[in-house]
Design a binder for these strands. Structure first.
Lengths: 175, 175
DNA sequence: CCGAAGTGGGTGCAAAATCAACTATGTGTG
DNA sequence: CACACATAGTTGATTTTGCACCCACTTCGG
């Protein structure tokens, strides 16, 4: 469902192969979504079925043929409809919070390890996002599209930063 | 996978029926996980299969029989093993960020609507969490279990608060 | 020259999650 | 009395996701 819209969104920016879509999910989109290769190719096929995208096979000299997927007018409409239908509400889901919730089954130092391990991972993720952020041309963010894309990265940065602060607070006051 | 551990965690606190588990997911656990009724009952059956829980049917005078699920020693071990195996890393997943990422397909005022709608929903969720937080006896949070449980709620509160701040920033600077 | 990594695409399978019914009975409200 | 809601649990179908493979060819590093 969501994946199909995200793919439509990417195809809206420019025609792409499944392979290129995967790379986007692993880089520019990774701070708010991820997707398995197999899932991408299958969803792509569904989009073509529904008439939201068309395929154009482009032969290359040295590399395999590109199955270039182009968004159709119907596809663009479906995307806009999703965006116009209002802000989606998705339930919170964080397995790590589950670990914390029941962590009392562990000894105090093991709990501390758990939190410190998470702290390190969060710091690592935050640093990754911050370096991605540096790569963004701030003059380009004057146009609305770039601004919004950069904003989602800012969101991820704020979330990670908030998590770090929380972890430090918990580590400090843990009885 | 995660759901099975969370159920084990809850059964660790006290024996419960599927119905009661569902209520916990809808109330005390809702800030970091949710689960469908059907999924809970099926997972419960799996836990019994694996020997992580046992069922005791308790007849009631006016109401249907309770299928009380008790955690076994093996179940407790499985839970502890999950907690000891280290902090789980789960990829970020936020459909709303997808909407923002591609929101440039909309007009400026529609984008503003989208963000304001989300702002309201976030405020509502935050208020809910804050009122849950009020219900927590702070003296009880001196023991480690209560402290950790309250901490996960604090985490959710911080996340929602950070989201609000972000939304305000985006609304202010949106070109 | 060998092997690793990159380009490009795909299948099969299983687990996890969601949606929508359906079964009973009891209790409280208008 | 009818109706909604709470207690308690179950079934079927479908979608979503994740993991592990498989193909073919090219380019680059040592």
């Amino acid at each position: 469902m969501v994946l199909a819209r995200l793919i439509l969104g990417l195809l809206c920016l420019s025609p792409m192969t499944g392979y290129e879509l995967k790379k986007h999910f692993d880089s520019s989109i990774n701070h708010f979504w991820n997707a398995d290769k197999a899932q991408i190719y299958r969803t792509l096929a569904q989009l073509v079925d529904k008439g939201y995208a068309t395929v154009r096979t482009v032969a290359q000299s040295n590399y395999p043929d590109r199955q270039e997927h182009h968004i159709t007018e119907a596809g663009r409409e479906a995307l806009v409809q999703w965006l116009s239908a209002g802000a989606v509400q998705s339930p919170e889901r964080d397995p790590f919070m589950g670990q914390v919730f029941f962590a009392a089954e562990l000894e105090r130092d093991e709990i501390q390890n758990l939190l410190e391990e998470r702290r390190q991972a969060t710091q690592y993720t935050l640093d990754d996002y911050l370096s991605q952020r540096e790569g963004i041309d701030m003059r380009a963010a004057a146009d609305r599209r770039s601004f919004l894309m950069a904003a989602t990265l800012d969101h991820a940065i704020r979330q990670q930063a908030a998590e770090l602060e929380w972890l430090d607070a918990v580590l400090e006051y843990l009885p």
